[in-house]
């Protein structure tokens, strides 16, 4: 059961914003510092096909959807 979604959401947002503010202020990542960031596993969606399979599974078994992208099609499974 959801206890306090608003509080958790605010906490997650604060975490991200704090990270953004702190990280950006502390470090200016130059293009030649991107050796790690250029790796495939450092993408937010490193395996789009697998993510699409997962989205399909969870869409058919749960009441929620969305979050990452706008592509993909409908399904009669839910």
């Amino acid at each position: 059961m959801i206890r306090s979604p608003g509080r958790l959401l605010r906490g997650a947002l604060l975490l991200v914003l704090a990270g953004l503010a702190g990280g950006c202020a502390a470090t200016a990542v130059r293009p030649w510092d991107r050796d790690l960031l250029a790796q495939k596993q450092m993408r937010l969606t490193p395996a789009p096909m697998v993510s699409a399979v997962d989205d399909h599974i969870y869409f058919s078994k749960e009441g929620s959807m969305g979050g990452m992208d706008v592509g993909g099609g409908g399904c009669g499974c839910n």
């Binding site: 991200v16 990270g19 953004l20 990280g23 990542v29 790690l36 979050g67």
Partner: peptide, 12 residues
């Protein structure tokens, strides 16, 4: 957002 050389974050 690239935060550091090792850290990437996203909000969608």
């Amino acid at each position: 957002q690239v935060v550091t050389r090792r850290w990437l974050v996203g909000l969608n």
